[in-house]
Amino acid sequence: MFYRPEDGHGLPHNPFNAIISPRPIGWISSRGASGDNLAPYSFFNGVAYTPPQVTFASTGRKDSLSNIEETGVFAVNIVEYAAREAMNLTSGSYPPGTDEFTLAGVARAECDTIPCPRVADAPAVLECRVTQVVRLLGDDNHLILGAVMGIHLRDDCITDGRFDVTKFHPLARGGYRDYSVVRDVFEMIRPGQD
């Protein structure tokens, strides 16, 4: 099968999200004049090591984007399998100003380097300052880029000096209503590296 996106795919559901999977989930926390916000974004990833930088995309003008444009900061909370139900609850379309931390019963803490809430017991949190908000093609698509100013690692997720994903099992997004969880990890050495 081949299709051009502008012509449509002819399938019952759009396969695009299923093709690009699994995708890490950035559980984005922010604060604005209307309060605290927590929402998951699966078009999320790291984009640079030095200095560390991340990106996520928002389709539509959501509270996260409004807060980030207002304050210039956000936090990326890494989602573990144990938090899947709370994360899913925060993905709903709620009226502006809804506090998803409270709605989903998620414990919050203050970030150390930015004026923003974070998920208190997340396996890892990246405290970020916005470097760019880029308007993408389409009706209302936005790319948010941030420099990581501080990193929280939960102590029980560190094994022998390494951040160990097998301790918390990261949740990932597939297409449609599909999710996956990282349980099996293996190591490969790049050619020329010992």
Rank of each mutant, 00 (worst) to 15 (best):
P95A: 10
P96S: 05
G97Y: 05
T98E: 06
E100L: 05
E100S: 08
T102V: 14
L103N: 06
A104W: 03
A104N: 03
G105P: 09
A107Y: 01
R108T: 12
A109S: 15
C111H: 00
C111P: 02
D112H: 11
T113P: 00
I114W: 02
C116I: 00
P117Q: 06
A120P: 00
D121H: 13
D121Y: 08
A122E: 09
A122C: 12
A122P: 09
P123V: 12
V125S: 00
L126H: 00
L126Y: 10
E127K: 09
E127N: 09
V130L: 07
V130T: 14
T131F: 02
T131H: 03
Q132Y: 09
V133N: 07
V133Y: 08
V134R: 07
R135C: 02
R135P: 00
L136E: 08
L137Y: 03
G138S: 08
D140N: 15
N141H: 12
N141L: 08
L143I: 01
L143E: 01
L145I: 09
G146L: 02
M149S: 13
G150P: 03
L153M: 08
R154L: 10
R154D: 14
D155Y: 06
D155M: 08
D155A: 15
D155E: 14
C157W: 11
T159E: 14
G161Q: 10
F163R: 06
D164E: 15
D164A: 15
D164T: 15
T166M: 10
T166I: 10
F168P: 02
F168D: 05
H169R: 14
L171C: 06
A172I: 06
A172M: 14
R173P: 01
G175F: 03
Y176V: 05
Y176L: 10
Y176R: 05
R177V: 09
R177L: 11
D178N: 12
V182F: 07
V182Y: 00
D184M: 04
D184W: 05
V185T: 13
V185H: 08
E187D: 15
